[in-house]
């Protein structure tokens, strides 16, 4: 016959405290990202991409409206460790378009990290995958 186990008092306190902790965690969570609606699209040349100099044309918009005069830092990274990231030189072309010049230093999967500050002071970060860069 199984003897019913006595529930420890501390366990009961923990069980009661858990929903409260969850509630507090949700209440204290940061508000929605102020730049959530910022769209960042990428047009890459040459296409298909291969090792060597590359040009990424980035288009920034929000609710269909182009975002001008943003300050952008663009960094190309491989999806694996041990490679020095490729820092891009960024120029604004106007009407929400920006030109980022950088170099693919190795074949494989790349990721473009766009770190930006909009004209109204809001910051955003976008990660744009660039898979399958050919080695030749």
């Amino acid at each position: 016959m199984r003897v019913p186990r006595k529930r420890s008092p501390s366990r009961g306190v923990l069980l009661r405290a858990a929903p409260l902790a969850l509630l507090l965690a949700v209440a204290c969570a940061p508000s929605a990202d102020a730049s959530a609606k910022v769209q960042c699209s990428l047009q890459l040349s040459p296409s298909p991409a291969h090792v060597g100099p590359a040009l990424a044309e980035l288009t920034l918009s929000e609710d269909g409206r182009p975002l001008e005069q943003a300050s952008l830092t663009v960094q190309g990274n491989m999806n694996h460790a041990g490679m020095v990231p490729s820092q891009a030189r960024v120029t604004e072309l106007g009407a929400g378009h920006y030109k980022a010049e950088f170099e693919f230093t190795m074949g494989g999967d790349w990721i473009l990290i766009v770190d930006g500050k909009l004209a109204d002071g809001r910051s955003f970060e976008r990660t744009l995958p660039m898979p399958g860069v050919a080695s030749k």
């Binding site: 999806n79 190795m106 999967d109 898979p131």
Partner: peptide, 11 residues
């Protein structure tokens, strides 16, 4: 050979 590291198959 040129190095190429991909995380995706048949790309």
């Amino acid at each position: 050979q040129p190095m190429e590291m991909r995380g995706t198959f048949l790309q």
